[in-house]
Design a binder for these strands. Structure first.
Length: 557
DNA sequence: CACACGTTGGCTAG
DNA sequence: CTAGCCAACGTGTG
């Protein structure tokens, strides 16, 4: 069922010369919304079908559609429209159906007399996707149905099962360093597949106005038609106003962006260092490719090889290296996927998640909503949250700041809540990456130095002393002098008046006092860590103190 | 067991 | 601008 690369190339050589068969096939687009480096689509073409139907199934759970906001919904629509357009250029088209794929696909198998179905294998371990694919697998062999399923993993540099088998009986690494070793042992990264120049036609008797791609987000059937919907969506035409997404959806834009922000900037690529990129830049200082990777408009292997070529072309003597280099960002991505895969169905939550420490977070809706709505009284935090709302993106370091603030730093709210909010708002929302980063920032897993805490005032001052970023995303503060832009509550009444603002009325006073509360929270973290150790049942003699001679001489009983 | 190190901290003294 | 400290971390290697 799961073809590997070798088998696929063998098929390519044996099948290409044979004449068209009488088979009919579906290529089921789920995540990889692209033609380039889409091995499952290539596999479909190499079956030489009489008819091939490219299908996308709009359901509430894939793409987190049930909970996503207008920005994300728009982005998906753009991806589908572009895909349809590119398919039509190659003699085909996209067929969009609405509803649960487990119900809809078997119907299509019957209607179109389908013999095989190809799709990108989902290895994330996400419960919804795993169950969906298991159910499809069962139905494909049920009764008179005999649909051959061909699934190929192509959303990571190596298939995750390759990492697992390389690792063998050894536990998977839970650090980036360990992962780098594993990646090297797993072998070289495969070259991407070229995009097909033409595709087998679907049955031309199907009317063009059937299975059409939605034209705008408000056309989407979800979540209006689902009783399971718990969250009020914001997809009305009103809600689509004043949104300025950082990128437009679709493979065409993805490849343009890859070219302009990466291929044509070899020196930028070769000297890229993630921690040096600026979270306060008014246009992204990073490549802006993340939404395309998360939706599968571009494959990680395509990006990986573009990076290799750019670095070579740059002639930079000492190009940056993982984990900070651009290549390193893709390594992080695979590492995160591997962890999600290994964690299984509890990945998104604290309970039962083997990579997540138990921390007794509070559940305070007032604080949570203040954070969500950019009303914490800390301009840097609030500006980030407003950028998320209007553009669907925040720089990685901005995400660090707001995630730390919500969890261990200041508000002591569960990372799960923050992760949910991000998932519904980020154009690059990604099951594996989003959770990994929340675990990291909340010091629940993979990162443990909870005594390193971001200040909601100090960190970004270095990069943006006059607060241009804040002025853009919080226009209410735009006229404040530089001196108070990060701490408006310190502005004297006269300055507030001059800036046309009253702190506490037009913009809130800080909802917590950072200096004090972050210290308290560190103690809470220490206690939580201690409790985890105790629960692990480490009996016997207490851990020896570090032999720092100076310190020991000072500490007396 | 010891040790080095970890993609991106803050603060203060010099 | 940099070094060193801060109560407080764990992983992976040797």
């Amino acid at each position: 069922m799961h073809l590997d690369r070798l088998l696929l190339s063998a098929m390519a050589t044996t099948l290409q010369s044979t004449s068209t068969t009488t088979k009919n096939g579906i290529h089921w687009f789920r995540r990889g919304l692209r033609l380039k480096d889409n091995p499952a689509l290539i596999a479909a073409i190499e079956q030489n079908p009489k008819s091939l139907y490219p299908v996308y199934c709009l359901d509430g759970d894939s793409y987190n559609l049930r909970h996503c906001n207008a920005l994300r919904a728009n982005f998906l629509v753009e991806c589908l429209q572009d895909l349809d357009h590119r398919l039509r250029e190659r003699g085909s088209r996209l067929f969009v159906v609405s509803g649960d794929p487990v119900k809809k696909l078997p119907q299509l198998w019957e209607d179109w007399n389908i013999d095989f179905m190809t799709y990108d294998q989902d290895e994330t371990g996400e419960l919804y996707a795993t169950q969906r694919d298991e159910n499809i697998g069962k139905l494909a062999k049920k009764g008179n149905t005999n649909v051959e399923l061909i699934a190929i993993a192509s959303e990571t540099l190596h298939p995750l099962h390759a990492y697992v088998s390389t690792s063998g009986k050894k536990a998977l690494p839970i650090s980036m360093r360990g992962f780098e070793t594993l990646l090297q042992r797993t072998g070289p990264i495969a070259q991407p597949f070229e995009e097909p120049t033409c595709l087998p036609c679907p049955d031309s008797s199907i009317a063009d106005n059937l299975y059409q791609v939605p034209k705008k987000a408000t056309d989407l059937p979800w979540p209006r038609n689902t009783p399971r919907n718990q969250v009020t969506p914001i997809w009305g035409a009103e809600d689509c106003k004043n949104l300025t997404p950082i990128v437009q959806g679709g493979e065409t834009h993805a490849l343009q962006q890859l070219k302009s922000n990466l291929i044509l900037k070899p020196k930028y690529v070769a000297t890229y260092s993630k921690p040096q990129t600026s979270p306060t830049a008014l246009t992204p200082s990073t490549t802006g490719l993340s939404p395309y990777l998360s939706s599968g408009c571009v494959s990680p292997r395509t990006v990986w090889w573009a990076i290799q070529e750019a670095v070579k072309k740059s002639n930079v003597k000492n190009p940056t290296k993982p984990p900070v280099s651009l290549e390193g960002q893709l390594l992080w991505r695979d590492f995160n996927y591997l962890m999600a895969h290994s964690a299984g169905e509890n990945w998104r939550q604290m309970e039962g998640n083997k990579y997540c420490r138990h921390v007794p977070w509070d559940d305070d809706r007032v604080l949570l909503n203040a954070w969500k709505n950019g009303q914490t009284g800390y301009p840097w935090i609030d500006a980030c949250m407003m950028q998320l709302k209007t553009e669907g993106w925040i720089h990685h370091l901005g995400r660090h700041a707001v995630a730390c603030f919500l969890t261990r730093g200041d508000l002591w709210q569960s990372w799960e809540q923050g992760a949910l909010h991000f998932e519904s708002h980020l154009l690059d929302a990604d099951y594996a990456l989003n959770t990994f980063n929340w675990l990291w920032l909340s010091c629940s897993g993979f990162f443990y130095q909870y005594f390193r805490c971001y200040s909601p005032v100090a960190f970004q001052k270095k990069k943006d002393p006059s607060g241009m970023y804040i002025r853009k995303y919080l226009p209410v503060l735009a006229k404040l002098p530089d001196k108070y832009i990060y701490e408006p509550w310190k502005a004297p009444i006269a300055d507030q008046k001059a800036a046309g603002i009253r702190i506490g009325v037009d913009y809130p006073k800080p909802i917590v006092e950072h200096t004090q509360i972050s210290k308290e929270n560190m103690s809470k973290m220490a206690a939580a860590y201690e409790a985890v150790k105790k629960a692990a049942g480490v009996d016997g003699p207490p851990k020896k103190k570090k032999q720092k001679t100076q310190k020991q001489s000072k500490i007396k009983f």
